[in-house]
């Protein structure tokens, strides 16, 4: 079943059109990779799906589980199961990670009409997931991402993904700034989340990440459009020949 349907999406930022009629369908259970050079609009797509302010959608639509995603506030999207793992997770001094996780988790549950989880139960759940991702317990007591290394920040994103159990996970340049060990831990965390009712969209510049998170479908973006889609072998092809060949197509 189609989880995410992006149809002919046109997006502007400050009067400049970034996405020029982008279409993409992601089905439940699939892992998609979106590749493309800098400036091709990959991050813009992820921001628009998550509902970041500052983007003007001038045409097209995005359906999530059949509903109009663009009509929803960012928090509604999160409660419905959209999760964006940020390329640059922000630091929030003074907001303790554990408190943030519980507030967010319960806000989503409340929005779905589910009962909120009490602190001890939640603590247990977080500890289990943190352990699996090699996240030290003291990190949970610190301000959100404050003083975290690049790898720790990314693991904190995966931790949230594992806790919130979203139906759609978008990973924006998850590999940027990670060494090979950190990348492996993060990738293992993502692979553990593979599920028949969940889709994962990996946005990446390099093929390297796809050795660890193996996609079912690979899309190539150039100049604000998807210019080619194929199987995982497309990523290897790109690695060999580069993005230049698609410039004309776009």
């Amino acid at each position: 079943m189609a989880l995410l349907e992006v149809k002919d999406l046109q997006v502007r930022v400050d009067e400049r059109e970034i996405l020029h009629g982008l279409s993409l369908t992601v089905n439940e259970g699939e892992i998609h990779a979106i590749m493309g050079p800098n400036g091709s609009g990959k991050s813009t797509l992820s921001h628009v799906i998550a509902g970041k302010p500052g983007y003007e959608v001038t045409g097209g639509e995005i359906l999530f589980k059949g509903d109009d995603l663009l009509e929803m506030a960012p928090d509604e999207r999160a409660a419905k199961g959209v999760f964006l793992a940020f390329q640059y997770p922000v630091e929030i001094p003074g907001v303790v990670t554990m408190n943030f996780l519980r507030t967010a988790y319960n806000a989503q549950r409340k929005a779905r009409g589910e009962t909120e989880l009490m602190a001890p139960e939640f603590l247990k759940k977080v500890r289990e997931v943190a352990k699996r991702l090699s996240i030290p317990q003291d990190m949970l007591k610190r301000g959100v991402n404050v003083g975290f290394s690049g790898g720790e920040k990314k693991r904190n994103e995966i931790l949230q993904m594992a806790l919130f159990e979203p139906s759609l996970c978008i990973l924006d340049e998850m590999d940027s700034g990670l060494d090979i060990d950190a990348l492996r831990i993060a990738a293992d965390g993502v692979n553990a989340l593979r599920a028949p009712d969940r889709a994962i969209v990996v946005i990446t510049h390099y093929q390297r990440l796809l050795n660890y998170i193996v996609p079912d479908v690979v899309h190539v973006m150039s100049k604000g459009r998807v210019v080619k889609s194929g199987g995982k072998e497309l990523a290897l092809e790109l690695e060999a020949s580069g993005y230049a060949q698609f410039d004309d197509a776009a």
Binding site: A50, G51, K52, P53, A73, P74, D75, R77, A78, A79, F83, L84, F86, P89, V90, I92, F100, T103, A104, Y105, A107, Q108, A111, Q160, F164
Partner: peptide
């Protein structure tokens, strides 16, 4: 935005 993207 980060907090809202997490459901707040």
């Amino acid at each position: 935005f980060y907090l809202r993207a997490r459901g707040l």
